[in-house]
Structures are given as C-alpha cells and as structure tokens.
Amino acid sequence: MSFKTIVGSLNSYQKGSIDLNDDLRHYAFSNIFEVANNSKPYERVMVVSNLEYAAEVVRAEGKSDWYTAPHDEFAIVMDGEIEFTFFQLGDDQKPTHKAGAIKVKGEPKGKRMGRVRARRGHEVLLPKGAAYQLSAAKPSVCLIQTSAGPESVERWSKICVLE
C-alpha cells in the first residue's frame, strides 16, 4: 500500500471545518496559506497568541527589512524557498525592547554571521540579538515561533472562521 501525504501551499490548500456548540472565537481557527494569500509581503500576521507568545505567518516575496528580537525566534518554511541572511548588530542597534521582532534601523553594522536557504519543512533559528533578513524569488510562506512584538499584526476577525 502506498500513501499520499497532503501538504498545503499558497496555490493549493483545503481548509478544515469547525462545528462546535461554543463561541468559535475561543478557538481562533485559521489557515496559514489563506492568511498568507491575503497578506502583504513581510507582514507578520499572528495566527497563534498564547499570552505573551505568538506565531506569525509571513508571506515572503522579494527582500524584507532587517529584523531583530531580544530572544530566539524560529521560522518554519511551509511553502516555497526563503533565504535568511544573518548579521551581528552594532551596539547602538541591539534590541532594547521587551519581546517580539522589531525592524533594525538602517543596515546592520556588525559582522556577517551566515546564510540559510530553506524550503518546505525546514526550521531555521533566528538567533537572539542578531539581525536577519528574508528574501524569496517567488512568493513563499513561513511560520515564525516568537513573542508578540511591535511588528505583530492582529486581524483575528478577518482570518478566523466565526460561523
């Protein structure tokens, strides 16, 4: 017997269903690919919120700004191919805010740390205090495990199934 594994993509996904005798807002049911299809490049749209923690869907297309966070973040590529470039920051660029990703002012002033080219299923470390930039030749999608922060976008009523 052979199996066929179903994965989603920007161009092809099927959403499940939620049929509950309860307030559906409590479950915040959404779909990563639907969210990415309705996002601008590099918007960080929250699809998970657990007190201070979050997961954000990012539609990668072209080159992003530089980001940094005061804690580790992790990106899981769900569709396409994304290149992540890492640099150290200058002392005056290091994150001083509490949590979540923030845009770096200007170009990072520190040493080049490396680069990762990742495809579906790959998980990439976005290390604490480093600058990172995403780029994608074609529209791609990743999910970022992080904390809610200045760049987090909340639009729950638009992304979630409510009836």
């Binding site: 959403k15 269903s17 005798n21 049911f29 990563i32």
Partner: peptide, 17 residues
C-alpha cells in the same frame, strides 16, 4: 459533555482552550 468537532487540514491553526 460534547461541544462538537474540529477537522484540521494541512495549514490549519486552532486553539485548544
């Protein structure tokens, strides 16, 4: 008591309260 049912497919995200 049952509250219902959720079917999650690839890419779906759902909170479990």
């Amino acid at each position: 008591n049952p509250r219902g049912r959720i079917v999650m497919k690839a890419g779906d995200v759902c909170a479990m309260p």
